[in-house]
Design a protein around this nucleic acid. Structure first.
Length: 714
DNA sequence: ATCACCCGGGG
DNA sequence: GTGTACGGGTGAT
């Protein structure tokens, strides 16, 4: 017996717990979330609160209103979620402090009742590492529209529906939908698994059903609801598009294309749902950053710390200019361009999370008021760090690091379940990675820019120390960045041991390269920080930064670089490497010939890129703008963050119809712009061979037979 | 020359 | 409702 899902209906103020036993049944309960109000020395307001809309019960409690602050008397009110924002705004206008206003009622309920998603209802602990993942029954669902070519829209009727092992087709559309519904009702799965179900299959199905006046039900109860509307948002320095989520009642719709599902699968999601308290359907649609925030909020609530309404407006956010100065010391060792033999790569494991834990970095501990003379000072900045208490962030991160390590150990120790543990540790890795960036994010609940700075400062100091240790152990340092070093020398394991002992964070030997090529910056020839390729001792290629690593590049370019590198990778030594260069150039020659003979399939020529704005917001007319206008012509309004696919047909054309063809409209007769693709081929080859004297220009001349082999030297 | 615009990371 | 800042490349103006 376990808790499959929990939902809250703000209209009726009802919690619904879906409990899976031999059957899956809803258990309902009326629940009002709690809000907290600090009067800030205006006791006369107390009576007012009881009379405000939606307020039910009022009492006093002792809570901390800010991280690191002593508990004080505040007012706790249970409030109708329907009127909470109105009430909160009124009190805010009167100068009150408002807390726990926008917490998810489901999470509040679960925390108050010591429950969590996927819990066994008796004797289960959310922090347990060894627990049983229940046997979910699952069904795959996908819908195919009847359209051979061109852009699919919701106006195209359904061709077929695949639900589980059944293919429903060759029937009237309404009948197909009906068959699917009975199929789902009969097998009664706990999970409906789709690929892109949020962005296509489910909205499409509901739309088609509505046309036949069918009130579609995919859940175990009516009430299918939209999790959130589709939206574009800014993340990771770029605009991303997120379709609205389609959530079901009593049944979990999981979209396998969502980030957390891809990275962790069902085991990773279940693990995360248990520790964050976020139900699976919502959780699968969140970013790792949101999951980290959830853990921080849980910890705060557990500690009796209230969560301020609205975002964290810390006293002092640095201007862009100040930030630049603080970051100026970022430690990077410019790589030595060219070919190197027998190189070791050594990396710190989870450097930033370990720094946060080891150095107690948290918004309330960095520059705390209570330990101005603390012995703990942040390098390069002289910020003091609290000596009296361990901060919220380390208390959240430490168990995460330990949990991940425990899973990593089990991968080796328990091969039968290795895959499951791998997925769990992988999700946790993402939480740890984002926990750092979140510190510098000015909308983070518990972020603070000084924490961000402190972490990078410690990082710099650690890498510097490591370099000194390496150099005094006789190593030559070829390249270094953030948490990694590339070195030449003897006995790297011993070095790792030494550094691990001195620093207290594991330094690991990541790999040994037979040879590695650090690539130059194409514009100024200096070492580029993250462009290299090399072959490890086990024969595996490692490539970073060049075209083949980019998701927007056509298959053609990726194939070319893969083929060229495959030739080079046959070399076991540096001197063998040089003899393979002509082979690599021969590959380029073949590609060039095929290209000019129009032998490549349109599918190999497609650029795939995420647009940052809508068609009329582009200030420059480029390939993306042309593609967007073409989509629009076809009746599709692409939103910022959505992905467009196009083939370049006439790069110099000013006409959006001539310049590119969006891939949905391309066919075997599409004529690509061979001049432009030729240019891309030369440049991609240049990316690989530039350190050896082959520029795109020179390669071009070689292809055209203007230069003979013996003239090309380096 | 300068600005616009897109991508990466880890495994 | 939730990652920054930056390096790198290419293309438009």
């Amino acid at each position: 017996m376990f808790l499959l899902d929990v939902r809250y209906d703000p209209e009726t103020c009802t919690i619904t717990k879906w409990i899976k036993d031999s059957r899956c049944t809803p258990v309902r309960e009326v629940y009002y979330p709690r809000a907290y109000i600090s009067l800030e020395g205006k006791p006369d307001l107390r009576h007012l609160i009881t009379s405000l809309p939606g307020v039910r019960e009022v009492c006093s409690e002792k809570k901390s209103t800010f991280l690191g602050r002593e508990p004080e008397e505040v007012i706790c009110a249970t409030v109708d979620p329907g009127s909470i924002y109105v009430t909160a705004s009124m009190l805010e206008a009167k100068g009150c402090g408002l807390y726990n206003i926008d917490l998810d009622p489901v999470r509040q309920y679960l925390l108050e009742h010591c429950l969590f998603p996927v819990a066994k209802l008796k004797g289960d602990d959310p922090h347990a590492i060894d627990y049983e993942i229940p046997e979910f029954t699952s069904m795959n669902l996908s819908v195919l529209p009847a359209k051979e070519r061109g852009i699919v829209t919701f106006d195209d009727p359904i061709r077929s529906i695949i639900s589980g092992d059944t293919v429903i087709e060759d029937k009237d559309e309404a009948e197909m939908i009906g068959s699917m519904e009975s199929e789902i009702a009969a097998s009664d799965p706990d999970i409906i698994l789709t690929e892109n179900g949020d962005s296509f299959d489910l909205p499409y199905l509901y739309h088609r059903a509505a046309l036949h006046s069918i009130d579609l039900q995919l859940g175990r109860e009516k009430d299918v609801m939209l999790h959130r509307g589709a939206r574009s948002y800014f993340s990771y320095g770029r605009i991303l598009y997120k379709p609205g989520g389609y959530l079901l009642s009593g049944r979990l719709h999981l979209d396998a294309s969502s980030f957390l599902f891809r990275e962790g699968g069902l085991p990773g999601l279940v693990d995360l749902a248990r520790i964050t308290g976020i139900p699976l359907q919502e959780l699968s649609r969140l970013s790792p950053g949101s999951a980290v925030t959830a853990l921080q909020v849980n910890q705060a609530l557990h500690d009796g710390v209230l969560v301020p309404w609205k975002r964290n407006l810390a006293e002092h956010w640095k201007t862009a200019e100040e930030l630049l100065i603080a970051d100026r010391g970022a430690l990077v060792i410019e790589p030595e361009v060219g070919l190197h033999e027998n190189v070791f790569e050594i990396d710190f494991a989870s450097l930033f999370p370990n720094i946060m834990v080891n150095h107690n970095i948290s918004p309330e501990t960095v520059l705390c008021a209570c330990c101005k003379d603390s012995r703990h000072r942040v390098p390069f900045t002289d910020y003091n760090i609290c000596e009296r208490r361990i901060g919220l962030i380390p208390r959240v991160i430490k168990p995460l690091v330990e949990r991940r390590m425990a899973y990593k150990k089990r991968i080796a120790a328990d091969p039968a379940r290795a895959e499951e543990y791998e997925m769990k540790q992988n999700v946790l890795k993402w939480l740890l990675v984002t926990s750092f960036g979140y510190m510098g994010f000015n909308k983070a609940r518990f972020g603070r820019i000084e924490c961000h700075e402190s972490i990078t400062a410690y990082g710099r100091e650690i890498l510097l120390t490591t370099m000194e240790l390496a150099e005094s152990a006789g190593f030559e340092i070829l390249h270094g960045i953030v948490d990694s070093l590339w070195v030449k020398g003897r006995d790297p394991e011993k070095l790792c041991e030494l550094v691990t002992r001195k620093i207290g964070i594991p330094l690991e030997l990541k790999g040994e390269f037979r040879w590695i090529v650090f690539l130059p910056n194409k514009s100024n020839g200096t070492g580029a920080l993250n462009r290299y390729y090399g072959v490890m001792k086990n024969g595996k290629l490692k490539v970073r930064g060049i075209e083949m690593r980019r998701s927007d590049m056509p298959r053609l370019i990726i194939n070319l670089q893969e083929a060229m590198l495959k030739r080079l990778a046959e070399a076991k030594t540096a001197s063998e490497f040089y003899t393979r260069i002509p082979d690599a150039i021969q590959v380029l020659r073949q590609y060039t010939r095929s290209l000019l003979n129009n032998e490549f399939a349109p599918a190999d020529m497609v650029f795939e890129t995420r647009v940052s704005r809508s068609w009329d917001d582009y200030r420059q007319f480029n390939d993306r703008a042309a593609a967007l206008q073409q989509y629009r012509q076809e009746g599709i309004e692409m939103q910022p963050g959505q992905i467009v696919r196009y083939i370049i047909t006439d790069h110099r054309s000013k006409s959006y119809k001539k310049r590119v063809v969006i891939s949905e409209l391309s066919d075997e007769n599409t004529r690509y712009d061979s001049t432009k693709y030729y240019e891309y081929l030369m440049r991609a080859a240049e990316s690989i061979l530039l350190p050896f004297g082959y520029t795109a220009h020179r390669l071009d001349e070689m292809m055209k037979g203007k230069i003979q082999w013996n003239l090309c030297e380096f």
